[in-house]
């Protein structure tokens, strides 16, 4: 029974003996979970309205952040760079709808998925051509985001919370609330949900497909910019972000592809669990960097129990 001890007993003993460290780990998990949730939110919006699994969401995050930083570096003041970047995202949304989505209406899912990978490659190339491929610093202070630390001392220990992380979490909560209000209360939001339920029925009551698609991609662009700012503040702006954005896929699967709340809960779950697993099981037992696969394996296990994800719509199959 030697091997059971480090797996089942020691990690929990560690957690109890150093609760302040556990709190720190949980906080780190929450912050990355919020970021996963934000990216997943962009996916869900587009998936709900057009059944497209938008692989380009990750690169849109990078592209938005790069545009913001790139504009600032070229002498545009920060307060102006922000709306300009939003403008760029709007142009991008219109362009994608015109050039890519419109000719591909009614194609199989996999083709549209591939097309979004094509968009990804195009945006990578474009971003590198215009702004260069090197890592950039996010203009955190210039945007008025505080950068200090809050220090807490619970249980006689020591927990440090960065103010920009706190800002990120608060900002994300505000964004999600606004988004939910928009989706559930506004006319446009209802149109988006109607399209998600049934394309043809929505078209027949006069909802414009192309307008809604542009709108949805633009909202996804706004979310991408928000994600890019908070993530860039933590890790700098570079194309490495794109790989991290892939994590949104297990988040989505875990929460269910159609569910906004599922994306948020899934994101938080994965963010927290993968941190805890990495610290208490991964590093001592498996040699570390388990964060690269933990989310996927977790999502896989959940899917085996619930094939539609935790909050997804029940899959009904007919012959």
């Amino acid at each position: 029974m030697e091997f059971i001890h480090p797996i089942l007993i020691k990690p929990f003993a560690d957690m109890v003996s150093a609760p302040d460290f556990l709190v720190q780990v949980l906080w780190e998990g929450i912050v990355s979970g919020v970021l996963y949730a934000l990216i997943a939110l962009g996916f869900v919006l587009i998936f709900k309205s057009s059944r497209i699994l938008n692989f380009a969401q990750g690169i849109m995050v990078v592209f938005a952040a790069l545009t913001l930083v790139g504009l600032y570096e070229r002498g545009v003041p920060a307060w102006l760079a922000l709306p300009l970047t939003l403008g760029v995202m709007l142009v991008l949304a219109i362009g994608i709808e015109r050039v890519v989505l419109r000719p591909l209406v009614n194609q199989p899912d996999i083709i549209l998925f591939m097309a979004t990978i094509g968009i990804t490659m195009f945006l990578i190339g474009l971003g590198e051509t215009i702004f260069g491929g090197e890592n950039k610093r996010m203009i955190t202070e210039e945007l008025g985001i505080p950068t200090g630390n809050f220090i807490f001392e619970p249980f006689g220990g020591f927990v440090s919370i960065e103010q920009k992380d706190l800002t990120a979490v608060i900002g994300a909560v505000v964004l999600v609330v606004v988004l939910l209000l928009f989706l559930n209360k506004s006319k446009m939001g209802r149109a988006i949900r109607a399209l998600g339920d049934d394309h043809q029925a929505a078209l027949s009551v006069g909802i414009s497909l192309s307008t809604i698609w542009v709108l949805v991609w633009f909202i996804a662009g706004i979310i991408a910019l928000a994600t890019g700012i908070v993530w860039g503040a933590r890790a700098g702006v570079s194309f490495a972000l794109e790989v991290i954005a892939l994590k949104a896929l297990p988040v989505l699967m875990l929460g269910g592809l159609e569910s906004v709340s599922g994306a948020i809960i899934g994101g938080l779950m994965i963010g927290i669990l993968e941190k805890v697993f990495e610290i208490y099981w991964g590093q001592p037992l498996l040699g570390g960097s388990t964060e690269s696969w933990f989310a996927y394996v977790l999502a896989l296990l959940v899917l085996l129990a619930r094939p539609q994800g935790l909050f997804g719509e029940k899959i009904i199959e007919r012959v």
Partner: peptide
């Protein structure tokens, strides 16, 4: 960089012309 961009455009183009 341009190569990546062109490949991306080609992929989209091919998918549109002949999925």
């Amino acid at each position: 960089h341009l190569n990546v961009m062109i490949i991306g455009m080609l992929i989209i183009g091919f998918l549109i012309v002949e999925p």
